[in-house]
Amino acid sequence: MASLESTRLKTESRTRWLLISPAMLVVIIGAIAPLLVIVIFSFLTPGPTGGVNFTPSFDAWTRVLFDRDLFDDTLTLSGTNLEILLRSLTLSLATTFLCLLVGFPTAYFIATRNPLNREVWLLLVTVPFWTNLLIRTFAIQDLIRNEGIINTLLLKAGLISAPIQILFTNFAICLGLVYVYLPLMILPVYASLERLDRNLLEAASDLYARPFKVLWEVIVPLSKPGIIAGSILVFIPSIGTYVTPILLGGGRNLMIGNYIELQFGQGRDWPFGSAISLTLMGIVMVALLIYIRHGDTRGHEHG
């Protein structure tokens, strides 16, 4: 019997490997191999007109944090890189926060509709996804530019005397990102709010919690997995965003995605581009770790 059992286990494990292998192949070819190329590139020197020279160097990595002075080769903490990184972080965190601010009440609203209406609302939330990102971004551009709809309306209403410069500001970038990524916040928050036991809200209210306290003490903590998942889903694409800073920020203020593109394009410094890409990846990974640490443990217990 023992040998039969072990044969069966062997067959099972072989089947499992066979089943997994296509996925593994995709992961290796599609993710690990290119990543490896990027890692290797980051330790080489730039080729004369793009590409790389196969001379090992830590220079690209040094330059992520430090600037070699233009003129005397001394190292100083890199103002440019830090500023771009900080801007990316600030803008993507602000985007995440604004998405939460708008997305949470929206998700709550949907979750408290009756089941039939909920589906309609959810469908409406996903409507923007039906259109290409570029087109949506151009639409926002048209909305907020000086002769755009918002300024024209405000001017006509006599609320302002000259158009407000909205386009090509950090605010415009934020607005665009919030618009584009809001559904990514609403959906996971909705999912955890929908699972929320209504009785808990009554229980809190019964125990002298005013409506705001009910929100703060019960609804928010219990929808934390959704809030964190939504924040991660918004934060990651925001920090790596490329199109929005160009179209809505006017390309004046680089975000890290544009900075990377610059290195692989006109900057002709692929190793440095690789090094910053990996830095960005590191940041994203830290964000994911926070998610795994804090998002997972609680909240699954009820329901």
């Binding site: 036991d197 009785n199 808990l200 009554e202 229980a203 809190a204 209210s205 019964d206 125990l207 002298y208 919690a209 005013r210 019960v218 903590p221 219990l222 934390k224 609680r298 909240g299 217990e301 009820h302």
Partner: peptide, 20 residues
């Protein structure tokens, strides 16, 4: 009067304990 102003408390059918 809303529940949070009533000196009346409830033991719910499914207890409704706060899981967090």
């Amino acid at each position: 009067v809303p529940p949070f102003r009533r000196p009346i408390n409830t033991v719910f059918q499914n207890y409704a304990l706060f899981p967090h």
